[in-house]
Design a protein around this nucleic acid. Structure first.
Lengths: 215, 215
DNA sequence: TCGGCATGTGTACGCCGTCCACAACAACCT
DNA sequence: AGGTTGTTGTGGACGGCGTACACATGCCGA
């Protein structure tokens, strides 16, 4: 009857799982992707890994520990999305133009990710965190920088190019981040959640322009 | 023995409570104030009202229904905070100056509320909503306007005063709101949660300046 | 006065996170 | 090879949550 006993998931043949931590983390990521932080349910992750609920406690000290790990992965995905957007900027001879384009790429990458990977995005910011001088590589993209640090380096570029006066550099990331994060929020769970893509694009452009002018 | 039976909370003398809906709502608000949306626990609210858990279902169709009511109250508090800030702006002879000051007041009121009533603030934005042409008076302040509408009228003032070109008025609330909301977010659960009050004040000023210039 | 209807109670269900004791296995040390 | 030890997964249980269903209570209007 129970022919499924032979198939691996959810019943495995070996007592040991092999890589349960990763399996749980990936299940958690999938849950977060579909339903945000609230959907990251420890027992469901163990179910998907084909394992008893308590097995999770060998790899995560608590539910919130698992959630933190998922969150770090979400930040890493975000970093990758931003890096991809940066990689797509057209090289310009004038460094000022390049620097501006890079900053814009950070913003659009951020916003795109919020729109396409809403669950992960919400998970990434569901909990307080200090990302500034964080060296946790679980949160970084290919470049080894987390999203916040990617923004910082874009701003540094702007200073080098002479676009942003040095004295206005300190704290500038918070202004830029505030604006972009706020728009992301409004589009995914605020009043703009029912706006059309075109409207959102237009608003994004205006907002990024505002940041560029107002830094 | 049970002398507490005579005292009203949590055991009341009458079978009927009298105003259970309000009692539950207020308990919910208190929970939200202390711990944000996550802390709004239906059973705990009934406990505080001195009532069996299921009694709540006579007044709220579900937990999330209660949460929505709390959320509306939080928005109303926010509106009051903004109105208070607006009421404090020094009248100027030049309407342009008044209009600008009013917009700033909306922003600072918003940010102050986020800092002083963090739990309520987080609750107010814990769930998607359409506030634009909402007429729910549970969310409004003294003026009958909800926070979003207060922002809108401040922007209208700016247009009347000739500060903001008419053609840039549509959608302007989203730009302003994005920036301010983003900063609020960063200060309460983002990387600025450990910044000093002075730093935050300075950033707020710069951000509001950016909005003013960049709209 | 009495019956109906709104309001609160009691009990129970399934889900969650988590604790504790135990079982299965891998690896290492004789 | 055989026993020991430590890691990893299991089983069962607990309390808390939201919620459904049946029942008790008592106000108000016919």
């Amino acid at each position: 009857m129970n022919a499924a006993k032979e198939t691996r998931p959810p019943v495995r043949k070996t007592f040991r799982h092999g890589d349960l931590r990763r399996a749980l983390l990936e299940a958690g990521i999938e849950l977060a992707r579909g339903g945000g932080p609230h959907a990251v349910v420890l027992r469901e992750a163990t179910r998907r890994a084909g394992v008893a609920p308590n097995a999770a406690y060998r790899h995560f000290s608590s539910h919130s520990d698992l959630l933190q790990a998922v969150r770090a992965a979400a930040l890493s995905s975000l970093a990758l999305a931003i890096e991809a957007e940066i990689a797509g900027v057209r090289r310009s001879k004038r460094p000022a133009e390049s620097a501006r384009a890079t900053l814009r790429a950070v913003g659009t990458g951020y916003l795109k990710f919020a729109l396409t990977e809403t669950g992960l995005f919400r998970t990434a910011f569901s909990v307080p965190d200090q990302v500034e001088d964080d060296v946790d590589t679980a949160k970084t993209g290919r470049s080894g920088l987390n999203p916040f640090q990617l923004l910082g380096s874009a701003l540094d570029l702007l200073v080098e190019a002479g676009v942003l006066p040095k004295e206005r550099r300190p704290g500038a990331e918070y202004l830029a981040w505030s604006a972009v994060h706020g728009l992301a929020f409004l589009t995914i769970e605020g009043p703009l959640s029912s706006a059309s893509d075109a409207e959102i694009r237009a608003l994004s452009d205006r907002l990024l322009q505002m940041v560029e002018n107002g830094l």
